[in-house]
């Protein structure tokens, strides 16, 4: 049974959740927040979307196979771990540079990697479970 109100809200809510997740991700270095929490929140948005529209629509929405999202998240976090090694420091050392007054560093890169990884992982878990349970089809 289609539910127009729920569909509209889920569609809108997805953007709200992802936006809020990005906000938490960027805020995470000094205040509560961070990659993992942001990833969970963004994935919760996708989960609601999936419950309403079905798992194929989620995969259409994000366009990339979640497996590659996980892989690239792992790659980004891995880069953050090994970049300091190239400069002769122990792995995972925070290294900072500033671009137009905004401090950018490997901890941010690491958080972004975790964010991407968590989103990919949870989306892949729940789309698979939905496919197996034949949800919405």
């Amino acid at each position: 049974m289609r539910n127009i109100v729920l569909e509209r809200i889920a569609n809108l809510f997805l953007y709200v959740m992802v936006g809020f997740a990005l906000f938490l991700l960027l805020r995470g270095h000094n205040r509560p927040g961070g990659g993992f929490i942001a990833g969970i929140i963004a994935a919760a948005g996708f989960l609601l979307y999936g419950i309403v529209f079905g798992s194929e629509k989620v995969l259409e929405k994000i366009k990339i196979n979640p497996r590659y999202i996980m892989g690239s998240g792992l790659l980004i976090a891995f880069l953050a771990a090994i970049i300091p090694m190239l400069f002769g420091k122990p792995p995972l050392t925070g290294m900072w540079t500033s671009l137009a007054g905004i401090a950018l560093g490997t901890p941010l890169l690491f958080d972004v990697g975790v964010f991407v990884l968590v989103v990919g992982m949870i989306v892949s878990i729940f789309t698979n479970i939905m496919d197996v349970l034949k949800w919405n089809s």
């Binding site: 892989g71 792992l74 790659l75 891995f78 771990a81 090694m85």
Partner: peptide, 22 residues
């Protein structure tokens, strides 16, 4: 520095296997 490599090398391979599945 070499002591971190036995951990990072398998991780690098895992990323490779994730991204180039086929």
């Amino acid at each position: 520095m070499i002591i971190a490599l036995p951990i990072f090398l398998p991780l690098a391979f895992m990323i490779f296997a994730f991204l180039f599945r086929h």
